[in-house]
Computed example of a mutant assay.
Amino acid sequence: MQIIDSQIHLWTGEQAPPHHWRAPFRMEDALRDMDAAGVDSAVNCPAIWDADANAYAVEAARQYPSRFATLGWFDLSVPRPDDFVDGFVAQPGMLGLRFVLVMPDQQRLLADGALEWLWTAADRLGLPVGLMVHPALYAELSRIAARHPRMRLLIDHLGVGPFTKLPEAGELVEALLPLARLPNVAVKASGVPSMANDDYPFASTHPLLRRTFDAFGPERMFWGTDYTRMRCSWRECVTMFTEELSWLQGEDLEWVMGRGVREWIGWR
């Protein structure tokens, strides 16, 4: 079984948000820790707090094309030419895009239709687009996904932010589940230990995972970590899924642990 982490961040600068416990986190750091944890590959979402992270992501994917692929970002407030996305994803290892749209100005961009050019480009190119979106925008996101069926959306962290724990986390997951009716929307089951009120194996979160699995199915729920903010080991993030969820077995486990995200982003 190939194990692919659906979300990590690589960056070279010394700064990071306080909830990310280490800085920097370079490709060599990731490879060492991945090997120790039994993780074959990882989808790098370049750190939005580091202006050089996209360029570093391209270099990491160029050097280790079987270990790292990238969902890159750029400033959405800056006007772009029609072919900008084409050139952006032509970079080595750049298989798609990923954006955080949770602050009020970012939410307005989505709600006001200012990003229609982006969705149109992603649909035309058949791109995966990762998103962290405020739940108030799920209805609009549902309409966007329906209009652009070739664009493949990935929602970060079961739709739960880094500081939210149960029971509030459960309410956010419930708000996300109706999006499962759209075949071009998937979810990353990443960052889950941070939602827990208990220690490994974080049993308090297991019902959330089962609810998400039942809604999205094994082919649209992707294991991941957001490793640099986890307070447990990478290996524990793996075994939480591979050894502690009795209902996740066989081919379903294979899809969740790597095959699904590989297919979704087109990582050949």
Rank of each mutant, 00 (worst) to 15 (best):
H148V: 14
L208M: 14
K188V: 10
L166G: 04
G191H: 04
P183V: 09
A180T: 03
V160A: 08
T164A: 02
S190M: 02
F213K: 00
P207D: 09
P183D: 12
R211G: 06
S194E: 08
L154W: 01
S194Q: 13
T164P: 03
N197F: 02
L153M: 15
N197V: 03
D156C: 03
L176V: 05
F216K: 01
D199W: 09
D199L: 13
V187K: 04
P149A: 15
L176W: 06
R152H: 13
R210D: 04
L153Q: 12
F213D: 00
S194R: 15
P207G: 06
L209I: 15
P183W: 01
E174Q: 14
K165Y: 02
P193G: 09
G191S: 11
D199V: 14
R181F: 00
L172A: 11
E168N: 07
F216I: 05
A169S: 12
V187Q: 06
L177V: 14
L172V: 03
P183N: 11
R152D: 00
V160D: 02
P183F: 09
E171G: 10
A175C: 05
A196V: 09
L182W: 07
F202Y: 15
A175P: 01
L177M: 10
L153V: 15
E168C: 01
F163Q: 12
F163E: 12
V192F: 11
R210H: 13
R152Y: 03
R152W: 03
P167H: 06
V173D: 01
R210S: 01
N184H: 10
Y200P: 10
S190E: 02
A189N: 03
L158P: 00
F163P: 00
P149L: 13
G170C: 05
S190F: 02
L209N: 04
H157W: 02
F163S: 13
A180C: 00
R152K: 15
P167F: 03
R150A: 15
H157L: 00
T205C: 15
R210T: 04
